[in-house]
Design a protein around this nucleic acid. Structure first.
Lengths: 183, 183
DNA sequence: CGTAGCATGTAACAGGTTACATGATTCT
DNA sequence: AGAATCATGTAACCTGTTACATGCTACG
């Protein structure tokens, strides 16, 4: 069974380079991690409290010190050890749930026009994200001093590679459906 | 908000071509749909009961008729209408959670050797699935009589395209990490 | 002075999984 | 005879989302 509480690990991982607030964590999820992971405040803040109680992270409450009230969290040695143990374990599962493919799979009920619609919408959603990722890869390749950069680069490269595959598929799929039209 | 109860829609979709038992549905999820969707008995059977109560599907109880006891379900006109409505709506979200990428993203804590391990394991998991999908695509391309085949082909093509991208990425990622080794 | 962004949090619910329980039938 | 597969189901749990509630601060 091992460790399935993934938000715990996401948070520990993010805190391993720098102290962050819950809000910061959400932002990271919505930017750097967005194409392969997600999470909401409703799971971030409760997890932060839980990890604090467990002693895996500590709150450096900067309230009133200067500027606005915020709670910065950072890893404790125990948290660090926990993270390392989890990172070493084999991956349990990579899960994907492509609603687009599900709808397409049942395309017989939908018809060609509807199926094409879904493909086009998928394509439109992917394109800008692809371009963004491409820029990220370029900038990461340029600046490779920090040790963690290689790993950010690897994940971003994964995104670029798969998004390119998605876009190629969109083209092929549209062709295939149009070929079928004449029958 | 719309319709988020996805298992409902998966079941309705699968029943749209043929009557199936809960067990059959599970098998379909574990084969044809496995690379983009999943589900367990613990959600299949309760959903089947719920949809029955709602009148979207009907149970053709073949118990005692011949052979072993089983409950075949099929779509009612209402179920059909519901499915069509859902298929027409735009996709709400395609979600993915790549634990592999998550662990890789935190590679700084793990180190090169551990990161390479994860990449290799990912590669080994993908390879056989890729080969299987390739065969499926070939056989679907050969036999294109039935109307639904095009849609199965499209989804399988998606799988082939993305799995190829995964494998390409594995090569690049390994190179990138080895390049870094010398630094 | 209003809007956008920073910042924290919770309650209700949704939507699943895991593990267990049970038993028939087919194949070897 | 025993294993594998067919077949149905449930209870406990987990994990997370949505929607709401609150208020500060920086900027134009």
């Amino acid at each position: 069974m091992a460790n399935d509480k993934r938000m715990d690990c996401v948070i520990l991982g993010l805190l391993s380079h720098e102290a962050l607030t819950g809000y910061d964590i959400k932002k990271k999820l919505d930017t750097s991690l967005s194409f392969f992971w997600s999470g909401s405040y409703g799971s971030i803040y409760p997890t932060l409290n839980k990890l604090s109680k467990e002693g895996l992270i500590v709150a450096t409450d900067s309230t009133l010190k200067e500027g606005r009230a915020k709670i910065l969290y950072s890893l404790t040695p125990e948290g660090h050890a926990f993270l390392k143990a989890w990172l070493t374990e084999p991956v349990i599962k990579d899960e994907l749930r492509y609603e687009t493919l599900l709808k397409l799979f049942f395309g017989g009920e939908l018809g060609r026009v509807g199926a094409l619609e879904h493909i086009k919408r998928f394509e439109e959603k992917i394109k800008p994200q692809y371009e963004l990722l491409q820029m990220i890869v370029e900038s990461l390749k340029a600046v490779q001093e920090e040790k963690d950069h290689v790993y950010y680069l690897l994940t971003a490269m994964f995104g670029v590679e798969t998004y390119e595959a998605y876009l190629r598929w969109c083209e092929k799929a549209k062709k295939e459906l149009k070929k079928n039209e004449t029958k």
